[in-house]
Amino acid sequence: MSDQASDAILKLQNVHTDIAQYHILHGVDLAVERGAVTMLLGRNGVGKTTTLRTIMGLWTAHTGTIHFDTDNITETPTPARARAGIGFVPEDMGIFTDLTVEENMTLAAASGPLSPQRRDWIFSAFPPLKTFWNSEAGNLSGGQKQMLSIARAMAEERKLYLIDEPTKGLAPAIVSTMAAALKELKNQGASILMVEQNFAVAKAIGDYAAVMDDGKIVWSGTMQELATNAALQEQLMGLSMEAAT
Score class of each variant (00 low, 15 high):
Leu40Gln: 04
Arg43Glu: 14
Ala180Arg: 08
Trp219Ile: 05
Trp133Asp: 04
Arg118Glu: 09
Ile217Tyr: 03
Ala110Met: 15
Phe123Arg: 01
Met212Thr: 06
Arg83Val: 08
Arg53His: 14
Lys48Ile: 10
Leu58Glu: 12
Asn72Ala: 10
Met93Gly: 01
Tyr208Leu: 02
Gly189Glu: 13
Ala243Ile: 12
Asp29Gln: 07
Glu165Arg: 05
Ser135Gly: 12
Trp121Val: 04
Gly215Phe: 00
Pro79Asn: 05
Ser124Met: 09
Ile66Asn: 02
Ile9Ala: 03
Thr131Asp: 15
Val211Arg: 02
Leu40Asn: 02
Ala153Cys: 13
Gly47Tyr: 10
Gly143Thr: 11
Leu160Met: 14
Phe199Tyr: 03
Trp133Phe: 15
Pro172Phe: 01
Gly143Asp: 14
Ser2Met: 11
Arg81Phe: 06
Thr51Gly: 06
Gln21Asn: 15
Met178Asn: 01
Ile174Val: 10
Leu107Asn: 01
Leu226Gly: 03
Thr78His: 13
Leu25Pro: 00
Lys11Val: 02
Val175Thr: 06
Asn72Leu: 13
Gly85Asp: 08
Thr50His: 09
Asn104Thr: 09
Met241Glu: 02
Glu157Gly: 11
Ser240Trp: 08
Ile95Leu: 08
Ala180Glu: 10
Gln197Tyr: 02
Gln224Cys: 01
Ala31Gly: 04
Thr100Lys: 06
Ile192Tyr: 01
Glu136Gln: 15
Lys145Ala: 08
Leu236Ser: 13
Val201Tyr: 03
Leu30Asn: 01
Tyr22Ser: 15
Asp92Gly: 08
Ala230His: 09
Leu58Ser: 10
Lys183Gln: 13
Asn229Gly: 03
Met1Pro: 04
Ala202Asn: 05
Asn198His: 07
Lys48Arg: 14
Gln117Asn: 14
Arg118Asn: 06
Trp121Ile: 05
Met237Trp: 05
Leu232Asp: 14
Gly143Trp: 11
Gln188Gly: 14
Thr131Ala: 15
Ala151Ser: 12
His26Ile: 07
Ser115Thr: 15
Ala137Arg: 05
Ala82His: 04
Pro77Ser: 09
Ala231Trp: 07
Glu136Val: 12
Ala204Phe: 05
Leu30Ala: 03
